[in-house]
Amino acid sequence: MPVVTADLKACQGYANCVMAAPDYFDLDDDGNVVMIKREFPESERSRVTEAARSCPVSALTVSE
């Protein structure tokens, strides 16, 4: 199953991923990304990939 991972050092708390896929991403009180789910089914690929691509500092990576 494909997986999305976050680079916590890169995250700047823009919250673009939260806007795009709130069921996968959240922010903690310090403004760091929190992964709600890592694995996603094929049917969710375009939505999760779009959320990852929307990160201005490229903190999110989709891998197989």
Partner: peptide, 26 residues
Amino acid sequence: NASHFRCPYHGWSYRNDGRLIGLPFH
């Protein structure tokens, strides 16, 4: 319906109770 409000200008984000959460390059 939103968990956060995110400013379109510089990307500051706030929880729906108003708390400032995301401040890029703080």
